[in-house]
């Protein structure tokens, strides 16, 4: 296991959120959230459906505009550090019949390099292919994206994020509806990112794999319900408090005890 010591003061954390409230219409979806992501670790954001997990991520990226709150990335405002963040949206958020091929999607991750008019050069293509190889999809570069399975679509999105060469990776349900081979391919990539000293934050829905995949958890149900290393924060009590009656008691202790 990696470092259990919280060596992250807010001013150095890859992502520090203070007093974040987001509301759709007049309905706050997340309320007054504080979150401090630990540098170089893998953090799972967990909570029941509709708890605001994805919204928290989108607000951290300023895709959704918060009502209040302050977000710093590596101690500086988001706008100055946005290039250090790679985002993997939910697979279902886009139309997969869009006329584009796998390699073109990965090249979108190089937009900050390419800019408005920059030519796509051989080294860009090579970089994109390397990222595809990292997720086991190098033979699929010329496929129309509509022909991919859900797991393959998710791998393409991950490859696009890798192309950004970011320091902080934010993933929204990367394991939702993917096959077992894809799940292990993705977790291998995420762990290799951690080994390179990168920071990974993922919205996660499968409580049975939290312990195996992540170092830290952040529990949310509209409000912050807990935060910290798995051993301290992922306990029957915190999970019960977050999920309420949605899980049976036996289930919770089984999930949260060490395997």
């Amino acid at each position: 296991m990696t470092l259990a010591l919280p060596r992250t003061a807010p001013d150095q954390s890859p992502l520090a959120i203070r007093g974040l409230t987001v509301s759709y219409g007049e309905q706050p979806v997340v309320f007054s959230i504080d979150m401090t992501v630990q540098d170089g670790a893998m953090t799972a954001i967990i909570g029941p459906n509709g708890a605001g997990k994805s919204t928290l991520l989108k607000a951290a990226l300023n895709i959704v505009k918060p009502l209040s709150g302050r977000i710093t990335v590596y101690g500086q405002p988001l706008a100055q550090q946005a290039h250090r963040i790679a985002y993997v949206p939910q697979r279902a958020s886009v139309d997969w019949d869009f006329p584009t091929e796998v390699l073109d999607v990965v090249l979108m991750g190089l937009y900050r390099d390419l800019g408005l008019l920059g030519r796509v050069r051989a080294h860009h293509i090579r970089q994109a292919r390397d990222c595809l190889a990292r997720v086991g999809m190098e033979d699929f570069a010329d496929r129309q994206i509509g022909q991919l399975s859900g797991g393959q679509q998710q791998r393409v999105f991950l490859a696009r994020a890798l192309a950004q060469k970011a320091d902080l990776y934010l993933l929204d349900e990367p394991f939702a509806g993917v096959d077992a081979a894809t799940e292990s391919a993705i977790i291998d990539v995420l762990k290799s990112l951690r080994a390179e000293g990168k920071t990974v934050v993922a919205v996660h829905h499968d409580l049975s794999t939290v312990r195996a995949y992540f170092d830290n958890v952040f529990l949310i149900n509209r409000r912050k319900m807990g935060e910290g290393p798995i051993a301290a924060a992922f306990t029957p009590e915190t999970v019960q408090a977050t999920y309420g009656g949605r899980l049976a008691d036996g289930q919770i202790s089984q999930l949260t005890m060490g395997a």
Partner: peptide
């Protein structure tokens, strides 16, 4: 001239936003 950002917004607006 705007084709690249226009297509990115059309395909995946959330991701486009994170690209500035």
């Amino acid at each position: 001239a705007l084709r690249r950002p226009l297509l990115m917004v059309a395909f995946d607006p959330g991701f486009a936003e994170t690209q500035g």
